[in-house]
Structure formats: C-alpha cells, structure tokens
C-alpha cells in the first residue's frame, strides 16, 4: 500500500493531484471522461461577486509548446455558482476548492461568505494573480501589503483551507509568499500564468484581443519549477506546484523540488483524462519504487 495523502493546513487530500483553476470548468465538464473522485481535489474556475462575461474574441492563441489566454475571469457570479454549480460539487467525494477573484477586499470576503453560508466547500484559493483583468488580479498579487491584507481579511471569515495563488510576474515571489503566510494562508499555489504576447505576422495584429495574455503549458514548466524552489525555501507552509505538467515525470519534478501537491492545467484540454491518469501513474510509480509515503519524495532535492 502506498500512502499518497497530503495535508494542506487542515485539509487532507487522498492524493496530490489537483486540477488548475480555469482549466477544469466546475468539474462537471469532465465527469464523462473520468471518475472525479479519483482526484486529490478539483479547483474551480474563478468565481467573482458579480457575473463577468470575459474578454472579446480571440481569447486564446497557441504558441510553441504552450498557449496564451485572456479569458478575463468569465463566470456567472457567486449567486449562480451557488445555485447552478455547487449542488454538483457537493455530490462529489473529492475535495473541492473554489478559486475566488475580486476587485476589492470586500468582494473577496463577500464571495467566500456566500459560499460558506450555502454549505461551503473544502477550501478557497485566492486568485491575486490573474494577468487578464484591469482591476484586482495581478495588481493585488504584485503587492505584498495588499496580498497580506486580503489574506488576513479572508482568514477571519473561514477556517477552511485557505490557499493564495501567486503570480510569477514579480521581482521577488518570496516576499509575496511570506506576506500571505504571515497573515494566515494554509498553502500557496505557485504559479499562475506568465504575461506573454504573440503577433500574427500576416495581419500584424496581436493574436489576443487584449494584446497580452497569460502563458501556460509545457513551455512554462522550468519557470514554475524555479518559482516553487524559491517559495519552498522562503515559507514553512505547503506549496502547490503548477505550470506545464503533462506527465508523471513533471509531477515528480515538482514534488522533488518541494511542492506538496500539484495542479494540472492546460493538459486537461488536450487529454481530459490526464488528471485521473496522473493519480494512477503516481501510485504505480511509488509501488514499483517501493516508496511508502510521498514524504520520501517531497522536497528530497539533492543540491
């Protein structure tokens, strides 16, 4: 038997494989492809206080081994989330983490309060790192003071697992990481997308309507690994590694670097069964390598 369970604050995941926000809908989109209960957990698309329609077309562009997106946090708003998505999420055995985005500290608090009073979920991931919105998003996540304030405000509202999702688009990610940790975050997600841009040489126009967007996919993995390395060395709380995971080797690379869990993002679009496959492959790997607990891998980087 292998023990794949990991702890994020008081939240116990049966395995370290989570799905990344914005790449897994609200889970229901994948129910026909996989058994959601085989995952460590799912992280929902960002939920905001009011409905958001998102940015104009085109919102995605494929790049070399990656993709740019500027979806712009399109979502039906917290009230519709509660009536339309939450009942399905409540029917799952897997852990559910809601990604929350907001323009103000009050709005973060409002969204989480509303979900808490509607039966709650297992945890919240604060999105202070979206590069595709004008207000909030990355503007919060590049400022340690605001990141700390948001974390502190939300910490007062919920005892559930509180995760802060960091942006790599900063000079010092460890400063932001420490600000979130000291205000009570249970874990940190590293990382959101990198700001990127692509131009169509025939029309000479940017490939995204918003000109720049967020880069994700295998192209960003080395950046993500470096950010995880930096953050695990700066804080005591668990880190969730995100960026470019396509296969088991990538998962192991993040765990060895020190991530306690991982999220798989863009790969869900290409292989909607990838998350369940990764959970199974990780278990097989541990069995065949006589690894009894993930603690033998996590952070076991030889430097």
């Amino acid at each position: 038997m292998v023990d794949l369970s990991v702890k994020l604050g008081n939240l116990v995941l049966s395995n370290p494989i989570l799905t990344a926000s914005g790449t897994f809908g609200s889970g229901e989109e994948f129910a026909g492809f996989i058994d959601l209960n085989k995952l460590g957990g799912i992280v929902t698309k960002a939920v905001t206080r009011e409905p958001r329609i998102g940015n104009p077309y085109p919102r995605i562009a494929e790049t070399l081994a990656g993709m740019l997106n500027s979806i712009g946090l399109a979502n039906p708003g917290v009230e519709k989330f509660i009536t339309q998505k939450l009942p399905f999420l409540h029917s799952l055995k897997t852990k559910v983490i809601v990604n929350v985005a907001a323009k103000t500290i009050d709005d973060f608090a409002h969204v989480i309060r509303r979900i808490e009073s509607s039966g709650g979920v297992d945890g919240y991931e604060l999105n202070v790192s979206c590069p595709n919105v004008k207000e909030g998003g990355i503007a919060f996540g590049t400022d340690p003071r605001i990141t700390g304030k948001i974390t502190a405000a939300v910490r007062k509202i919920t005892a559930k697992c509180l995760i802060v999702k960091l942006t790599p688009n900063v000079t010092s990610i460890s400063t932001i990481a420490r600000a979130a940790e000291s205000e009570g975050a249970d874990a940190l997600s590293v990382m959101n997308t990198l700001v990127g841009m692509a131009v169509d040489i025939h029309s000479r126009r940017p490939k995204l309507s918003t000109i720049t967007g967020g880069l994700s996919g295998p192209a960003v993995k080395p950046v993500a690994i470096a950010r995880v390395y930096e953050v695990v060395n700066a804080v005591q709380i668990p880190v969730i590694g995100i960026g470019g995971i396509m296969g088991l080797e990538d998962v192991l690379e993040f765990l060895i670097t020190g991530a306690s869990a991982i999220q798989v993002g863009t790969a869900n679009f290409i292989n909607p069964a990838i998350s369940e496959e990764l959970a199974a492959n990780l278990e097989n790997y541990c069995l065949s390598h006589h690894i009894k607990t993930l603690q033998d891998i996590i952070g076991n980087l030889q430097t």
Binding site: G22, G25, P56, P58, N69, A74, F269
Partner: peptide, 24 residues
Amino acid sequence: ETLMGCGFGACMGCNVQSASGESY
C-alpha cells in the same frame, strides 16, 4: 468556426457574441 482550446466547454476560449452584445 472559432479557435478552440478544448472543444468540450472547459477553456472558454471559443466565445461568440450574443445578438445584444451583452454576453457570450
């Protein structure tokens, strides 16, 4: 025909304006 990131409703990359222009 629009660009598609996934084809099954997960990426929200294939948006088309509603007639009113107020939603996708």
